[in-house]
Amino acid sequence: MENIWIKIGYALLTIFIVLNYGLLLQGLFRKIGARVGRRHGIRIWQPWVDIIKNYTFRSRIYHGVMYYLGPVFRLTGGIGLLLFLPVIYGSEMFSNFSFTGDLMLVLYFQFFGVLGMALGAGESGHPYSAIGVSRGLSQVTAFELPLTLGVLAIGLQYHTLNINEIVAAQQGSILNWTFFTNPFAAAAMLLSFLGAMGRSPFDVVLAPQEIPIGPPTEFNSSLLGVLQLNRAIFPVAKLILFMNLLFGGATNWGELIIKTFFIYFWSVFVGIAFPRFRVDQSVRWFLSIPLILGVIAIILIKF
């Protein structure tokens, strides 16, 4: 796979597959949520139509350069995270641009989009955007702690920061998964994963009915369309990251879809069962049980 153009082709194919899978998950999980509420909910293809509709608006409002770049940074964060991950283990085509030490870069990319969006939403000048951004940044900072501790524990466990090698070490049996070999790190990471997905009870950022609807309040038409694309790609990229770190990766797309579906379902399950936290409750919660689990994971690995 020396030719860069073939690599770019496969990268685009990955983005295409992941985008459509992400939209399908969105529709599916909104339908599941509706079924819990005894409704039929949206049609499964609604997310596609919503995006097309947003791109067909005739007028759009700009508030300045940063406002324009905010959604672009956000999408870059999602796509960047996806392309530096080995999506399919052992496949040269779908390993994309992953390299030795990619775990650190991937952690950084998780934060990148949030910061870009913070700048963009700041320029829109809407008070709810500012509230949403401050809420988002405090919550991200809180759940990054247990997440990073868990990731470091995994790095110490396998003596590598290369996701591919971490996946390789988990092959052979289900009992080789980090989920079973390092349960404390897995618990810390899966709890902070709830915050990363931004679903209830940790949906303090968008918080509809409370601060309608946080950072993207002012974003309209195609700018909102870009954000929606990211809302499809970014969660799947995160799912793939957690699948690689905790659940032994995937050797084909079918395995990937089954595993990521159930990881996503974990956040949906919690989200449907619990109402929204306040910001202070959410931050305190991440700094209690998940953080303690993360510290235990590090101590157990070290000694």
Binding site: R39, I42, I61, Q209, I213, E218, F219
Partner: peptide, 21 residues
């Protein structure tokens, strides 16, 4: 609500005028 459930017809509520049609 479950009885009428307008989401079935592609009708959704949006809290901000910028994004509503």
């Amino acid at each position: 609500t479950p009885r009428f459930d307008a989401y079935r017809f592609g009708i959704q509520w949006r809290p901000t005028p910028r994004q509503s049609s």
